[in-house]
Design a protein around this nucleic acid. Structure first.
Lengths: 352, 352
DNA sequence: GCATGGATTGACACCGGTTTCCGAATATCA
DNA sequence: TGATATTCGGAAACCGGTGTCAATCCATGC
């Protein structure tokens, strides 16, 4: 009751498909064919209708299309906020891929630890009838979630650090190889006692990065000491804590690889508190190449994770069929690369 | 052509309003009344229908409702990525306010400098027929954008650093007063030569913060030296550049206030490069209280900007009428507060 | 000149809700 | 008990597109 006048009288009513049809002297269906780029359509008719569309400034109503088609034009981004910069980068990547299409992006943060996770997501997907979703790590590593998407008939693409689904449903980076390379770089710089701050249990990225680390250590014939591996949580604070544990060791490691930049920044923070100089007394390498990596002192040598490209690729995989039929060429694997900055130096002679 | 079987046969068809009506032995209209909480409805009937809804797990189709009602259930977030953490905080605030309602959030980054800005946004709003939008600073300071929203009949709420629209359309913080307080704190600590790195021209937040700075300087009877004010761009890099300019002065300022944390981090970075100790040789205060403020060394004294609360309030203002009719109680002004950490100390005697 | 057939086009039902209009049922009241 | 007011429920139209299927048109072949 008590309807509000939203100023409808002030602005012209939006033209509908019927208006276009009437002015062009064709049927609704034909206009619909023009909109949907149907190939079985006379060029002359198409042009006439398009002229009317331009003249009227007609825009098809997405809600009506969504209802008729049984699905809307929304791509969901489901994430368990791992890191603000990363989430925003992903949003940009997705929107880049969606630009110029009819699709929009809706964002859905979820709580990884909630017992309601699957129910929440199911309700979200069923209610909104999304066209598809992009799943961000770490939540993308949850197989139950992928199965749920299948079950409710929602397309999905998972982003992650390893190929944990068919290439149709996956965009991955090669974390293991990239970390092997980063660690090899430390070894090549002369380090022999190298610490690792790994990510949380159950994270695929943590596992892949740890495996890469181990690959390099083994390949160099070094000993893989259990004590040189500390656990972290991908947060700055746990980076500080883990770094303190490693820096208490004797002999002390001369270099530490952290599974992400936040924790690497924590190492630098902890080192500074103890008067340990980075990189003179301690070399540090992180992972991700978030802005913090370039903004702390010294600038962090890190592995650049191609998150924007991955997101773009993921979104294209989702809507590719519709936008560019037959374009199945989105890559499923994008390489991570070592970025050398100022946090790595050869170890001091007396330590080595 | 070439329809794909999306596994429809595998999952049960979704119940429609007709199924509910049949099972409850009532008409569609009655079910619709239950869904829309119509007051003219027998309690007994309502309960019976609700029981069936629960039993069937019925969820009204948002696309159909959107079509019938002429508006959808989407709240847009329009931003010109000022800072990842801030954008994500705003997303969380909005989604908090929207949780439990039928609304979803769609995100729309725009380019402040694009000549197509207004056309892009207009196309977006007209196409999607959004229920409403939240405008983030700095783009929220664009009056033309607000007028555009009015024009296309889209509700809007602007977030910002000053009350630049009616309270119905605005959620603001009191930046000027908060910065006055922060600067007064520096003066009270003994500083007399205080630098300012301000935000870019044309940003309302930059202006408000500068005014607060000037308020405090004048109130203390200090001289407002033009040379002590440097311009920045709200980025880390310009913070470094501006800090270098100020630190080249002789006599050198003993404290610097930066209009945001990124630039304040740039000051700390520049100081470290020059061997100037923070806070012993230089005190620094930032603004925003982003995570970087707590994660650099020393932890940054800063002004906490209540961005999450502002976003929540903004979203509630938008959908409040629908969700809680008559709830007009969302605040339009939320206070910023000084957070004291480790980057401020009294100036050294010989410098003072 | 007429049948054949591919290329175009249009009529109509339908997606799943909301709303209008009106008849029916219940409650209140004389 | 009958009349009137009030509330509730049902049929059908409508929101603005899309799918199905048949009709129409024109060129070609005999």
């Amino acid at each position: 009751m008590a309807d509000k006048d939203q100023g409808a009288s002030a602005r012209a009513a939006k033209p509908t498909i019927n208006d276009v049809a009437r002015l062009a002297g064709v049927s609704k269906k034909t206009v619909s064919r023009v909109i949907n780029r149907s190939p079985l359509l006379n060029d002359e008719t198409r042009e006439r209708v398009e002229a009317v569309i331009r003249q009227l400034g007609y825009v098809p109503n997405p809600q009506a299309r969504a209802l008729a088609l049984g699905r809307n034009f929304l791509v969901g981004l489901i994430h368990d906020n791992p890191n603000a910069q990363m989430v925003l980068n992903v949003q940009h990547g997705i929107l880049e891929a969606l630009a110029g299409t009819d699709f929009e992006m809706v964002v859905r943060p979820v709580d990884r630890n909630s017992s309601m996770l699957l129910d929440d997501v199911r309700a979200f997907l069923e209610r909104q009838r999304l066209f598809g979703v992009v799943l961000l790590p770490p939540i993308s590593e949850n197989d139950a979630l992928a199965r749920l998407c299948d079950e409710v008939g929602c397309r999905y693409v998972r982003m992650g650090s390893a190929q944990l689904d068919s290439s149709e449903h996956m965009v991955a980076s090669n974390d293991r190889e990239a970390v092997r390379e980063a660690t090899a770089y430390l070894i090549q710089s002369g380090h022999r006692l190298i610490g690792l701050i790994e990510g949380p249990d159950g994270f695929r990225s943590a596992r892949e990065r740890r495996l890469g680390f181990e690959d390099a250590i083994k390949a160099a014939g070094l000993k893989l000491a259990r004590s040189l591996i500390a656990g972290g949580n991908y947060t700055f604070e746990t980076g500080v804590t883990a770094a303190n544990r490693l820096l208490d060791l004797s002999p002390r490691p001369t270099a530490i690889f952290a599974s992400n930049d936040e924790m690497a920044a924590g190492i630098v923070f902890a080192a500074r508190e103890r008067g340990i100089s980075v990189p003179d007394d301690l070399s540090v390498i992180g992972f991700d190449d978030t802005p913090i990596a370039a903004h702390i002192w010294p600038p962090l040598t890190t592995v650049r994770w191609p998150i924007v490209s991955m997101a773009r690729s993921a979104a294209r995989k989702l809507v590719g069929d519709v936008v560019l039929p037959g374009d199945d060429s989105q890559p499923s694997m994008l390489p991570s690369m070592l970025v050398k900055r100022g946090s790595v130096a050869p170890p001091k002679p007396e330590v080595a």
